[in-house]
Design a protein around this nucleic acid. Structure first.
Lengths: 216, 216
DNA sequence: TATAGAATCTATAGGTTTATAGAAAAAAGC
DNA sequence: GCTTTTTTCTATAAACCTATAGATTCTATA
């Protein structure tokens, strides 16, 4: 009990691997379509042994969703709290969102697609984290409006949600089609969100946005 | 066998009801989370009787997805083929997409979230319809570019996909939170997609878009 | 009202699933 | 090296699920 660290470390490590395996399987087959045997197999252990790490299959799903959200939320909070120009912040927020998909892809996918299969009370914690994310993002837009960088009539709530929808969509696409590059998608999302699609009527070089280069 | 119509009608009608029930249950519990007993119960028949209408559970999923897409695709094709100003077309496309969610909500949700659980060869037909939808939408954007209404550097492919992502997101939201009105969401989607968020630098009354009224 | 065909029911085979309990093996501590 | 704790294994109970087969009831028509 001196090095109360070593055994804890060992368990922690194995536990993490178990969560990752669950994430991969749930992402692939869906919560109900996946069996505990599938997850165990991926870990190279027997089905029954899985219950050393998870109290139940449902608990495994909850853990997977939580690991996805933790990074995600802490990231946006650090971005939102730092001072800086709006466009830079927004770019950072989108890049972070997509990067989370790139690195933590299975867990994010599971959170988005399978979370509703958790009973309501198990989702409370997840909802709280999700709200925090949304608020931070909304805050970035509101700040942009009050500093005059964004349109005064912008609906920040609607815009924040739309951005989340957009990022989730492209996050999934990034997983599915390999040739897609995160940076390109980020840039394009920023561009379309800020400038829209309409032809600009004349010399509107705007702030200092370089005219967007065609990527793909 | 003279009135080969009546009995066919009867079967057709019942069959449609069965597809609708399957859609509702799949939307709620997911394909794997739903049992054939659940669907039968919703229809008020016994589990085994369901196989009079579906060859298998998988076939039921396929049918649900197909019914969702059929309306959806035929709608966009009629919109895209008619001549008219780009902004009007775009508005119509978004409105149609969201309206499909409103009316055919369960089937659309199932198509989006559960379709990948079908084996690849059963998805062929769905993919073809999906591609058609995407192409029509992309065509609307391309046309806008070539007529000078949209930015010349617009990536039409990227934009079309983004719009699909956006509409799917808001389509789901429309289901979940009742107070949301389809028309408001449509208008806001059009607005943000066309104009973006940035403050416009001065007198840019643009074509003839009324300055967007704050809705919510 | 008798009959053919459509629609539904009952019962069940054969398989899979989650979760638990107790034995066995592996690792850590002294 | 011996003991304790951690980790994994085996076996199994209890439930559930899909799909089928054959019996039964309903419906429409002649």
């Amino acid at each position: 009990m001196q090095t109360t660290d070593k055994p804890t470390t060992r368990y922690t490590h194995r536990h993490e691997r178990a969560v990752a395996a669950a994430a991969a399987i749930f992402a692939d087959k869906g919560y109900h379509g996946a069996s505990t045997r599938d997850i165990a197999e991926k870990l190279g252990i027997q089905q029954g042994s899985l219950y050393y790490y998870f109290k139940s299959k449902e608990a495994a799903l909850e853990e997977v969703c939580l690991t996805a959200l933790r990074d995600y939320v802490s990231h946006i909070e650090s971005i939102a709290s730092q001072p800086g120009k709006l466009e830079v912040k927004l770019q950072a927020a989108i890049a972070a969102h997509l990067a989370t998909y790139k690195h933590n892809n299975e867990a994010m996918k599971v959170h988005n697609e399978q979370r509703l299969y958790l009973p309501k009370d198990r989702r409370k914690h997840l909802n709280a984290l999700g709200s925090r994310y949304r608020q931070q993002l909304e805050g970035i837009f509101c700040e942009g409006v009050s500093t005059g960088q964004l349109r005064r009539d912008l609906d920040c709530h609607f815009t924040a949600l739309s951005l989340i929808g957009l990022c989730n969509y492209w996050g999934i696409q990034l997983l599915r089609s390999a040739p897609l590059k995160t940076e390109d998608v980020t840039e394009k999302c920023v561009d379309i969100l800020l400038h829209g699609c309409l032809a600009r009527k004349a010399g509107i070089p705007d702030t200092d946005t370089q005219t967007d280069t065609q990527v793909n």
